[in-house]
């Protein structure tokens, strides 16, 4: 890797870190989601700084063409990020389900109609006031 290429990679890493830190400062990104991204940015800088060492590691693991090794590392970190997001989506999905179920149960108990998400202002959707007796729990 030429000096220019190493400076370019380091520049990309620094730019990524700046974007992440700015998002953190303005509270547009949660800390829990920032760590893997910071790892990726820092990784780029370390790679640029210690390129001969990285080349040696590439050959040590049996990859003769070091750039392929760097790409593999980047791909791995990106896959890790995607998996992290899938985990978070699963948690969010469960939490959303629990919330919606809770709303449904509370509205059933109060006899009122649940809010219609995204179409609350639309009349005539059929959710009138309760017309049947509601309540009366089994002893």
């Amino acid at each position: 890797m030429t000096l220019e290429a190493r400076l370019f990679v380091a520049g990309l890493g620094i730019a990524l870190l700046v974007v992440i830190l700015r998002a953190l400062r303005t509270h547009r990104l949660r800390y829990e989601y920032s760590l893997l991204w910071i790892l990726l940015g820092a990784g780029l800088i370390v790679l640029a700084a210690l390129q001969p060492t990285a080349d040696a590691i590439a050959r040590w693991v049996g990859i003769d063409y070091p750039p392929a090794f760097y790409l593999l590392l980047c791909l791995f970190v990106i896959l890790l990020l995607l998996f992290h997001l899938s985990l978070k989506l699963s948690v969010l999905g469960d939490q959303m389900k629990d919330l919606a179920q809770q709303i449904a149960i509370i509205t059933a108990e109060s006899g009122s109609a649940a809010p219609e998400v995204g179409r609350s202002s639309k009349p005539g959707t059929g959710d009138g006031p309760a017309t049947a007796p509601v309540g009366g729990e089994p002893a």
Binding site: A100, A104, A108, A113, A114, V117, G126, G128, T131
Partner: peptide, 22 residues
């Protein structure tokens, strides 16, 4: 998005309505 809830109440049932399709 139809009148399922209202029809159910009119039929004498209690209704628990999810605000979104789950």
């Amino acid at each position: 998005r139809d009148s399922t809830s209202a029809v159910a109440r009119a039929g004498g049932a209690r209704v628990a309505r999810h605000p979104i399709n789950l």
